[in-house]
């Protein structure tokens, strides 16, 4: 059976078309202001990618914060449930999923069937999410996608003293004035995000294997910070932003 999973996030809409547990096509479109249009576009993209027409799709499930607004289906699954299903599909040994998006971080503990055992969200605090890194990259005058690679050049850990996003931005400026190497500042920023996320992870605890998904997982500096903080290897799937949509597509087949 061919199914589709639609993940409507705060910044992007992701669609996966799957058949018998295999991903056949994918599409990603910025959410913009018109989510309905963006969802349709992403769906079309995924269908085109799979080389299938709409009528072949036997079931659709929506997930993500915007799932209630999805006009293509009324079947839904929470982003927590979708992430667990998707992660175990991508990596069967996965038992802990850490999902870090633009505005929020989540930790999900699951079993081998992709069923959620426990989960935690980070509380309202920008320092534990992608937006924080984005703001800091701006203060450092580095494009966001270069922040991670830049931080990897750092040989020295620098502690960010400010615990809040507003103070942190001026602290970055202070560090720049103090002639701190830019790579060290980049690392300090990403370590700070990782530290916040790890705080949340410890709340539910973690078990091998640990997978990091969500947009921020694409940042190699952040991933290094996570490995150092958790003192273990973490797994990042090839396209971490699609894991939720994969989970939704699997749910559609159930």
């Amino acid at each position: 059976m061919i199914t589709a999973g639609i993940d409507i996030g705060a910044k992007t809409v992701k669609v996966v078309v799957a058949g018998d547990g295999k991903v056949l096509g994918k599409g990603l479109v910025p959410a913009g202001l018109d989510t309905t249009a963006a969802t349709e576009q992403a769906f079309d993209k995924a269908l085109a990618d799979a080389g299938l027409s709409k009528d072949k799709v036997g079931g659709i499930v929506a997930t993500g914060t915007g799932r209630k607004d999805c006009t293509l289906t009324d079947r839904e699954i929470t982003e927590v449930g979708a992430a667990a299903k998707g992660a175990v599909q991508v990596l069967p040994s996965c038992r802990t999923v850490i999902d870090v998006g633009a505005e929020e971080g989540r930790t999900i503990r699951c079993n081998g069937a992709g069923k959620v055992i426990d989960f935690a969200f980070n509380e309202k605090c920008a320092a534990g999410a992608g937006t924080f890194a984005e703001g800091m990259a701006r203060a450092l005058q580095v494009p966001l996608e270069e922040l991670g690679p830049l931080s990897l050049k750092s040989k020295k850990a620098t502690q960010m003293n400010a615990q809040c996003a507003v103070f942190a931005e001026s602290e970055v400026v202070t560090l720049i004035h103090a002639k701190t190497p830019r790579e060290d500042i980049a690392r300090a920023v990403l370590d700070a995000v990782a530290s916040r996320i790890i705080s949340m992870v410890r709340k539910v605890g973690f078990e091998k294997d640990v997978m990091v998904i969500g947009g921020v997982a694409l940042n190699p500096g952040f991933i290094e910070g996570m490995k150092r903080g958790l003192e273990m290897e973490v797994f990042v799937p090839e396209e971490p932003e699609y894991v939720g949509a994969i989970g939704a597509a699997l749910a559609a087949a159930e």
Partner: peptide, 18 residues
């Protein structure tokens, strides 16, 4: 100002699913 209803509902959804 410190309560985010949408997020709490989302969390409740996930809890019920669990």
């Amino acid at each position: 100002r410190e309560f985010d209803e949408t997020r709490v509902r989302a969390r409740f959804d996930a809890f019920m699913e669990t």
